[in-house]
């Protein structure tokens, strides 16, 4: 899933490690999210969005989700 995490992280000048520590995941998970290899759970998506004071939709791109 496409996300704006990398963009927002650079905007706030924080490292993957720092963001990971703030939201309770490892640096590797942030790397996977930014590389679109892993899709965050609802709870993690909420925590990341909260960290940047945005809504989940503003951080995660749901437009390319496959139709059922």
């Amino acid at each position: 899933m496409k996300t704006r995490i990398q963009e927002l992280r650079k905007l706030h000048r924080i490292s993957q490690e720092e963001l990971g520590l703030a939201v309770g995941v490892t640096r590797q998970t942030i790397t996977s999210l930014e590389g679109e290899k892993y899709t965050a759970s609802l709870v993690l998506a909420y925590k990341i969005a909260q960290y940047f004071s945005l809504s989940i939709e503003e951080v995660f791109d749901f437009s390319q989700l496959e139709e059922m």
Binding site: L21, G24, V25, T26, T29, Y38, A40, V43
Partner: peptide, 15 residues
């Protein structure tokens, strides 16, 4: 301790 907690509870690691 916090890093260990995160490592053990990381959702990607669990998956």
């Amino acid at each position: 301790l916090k890093k260990l907690y995160i490592k053990e509870h990381d959702e990607r690691e669990q998956l």
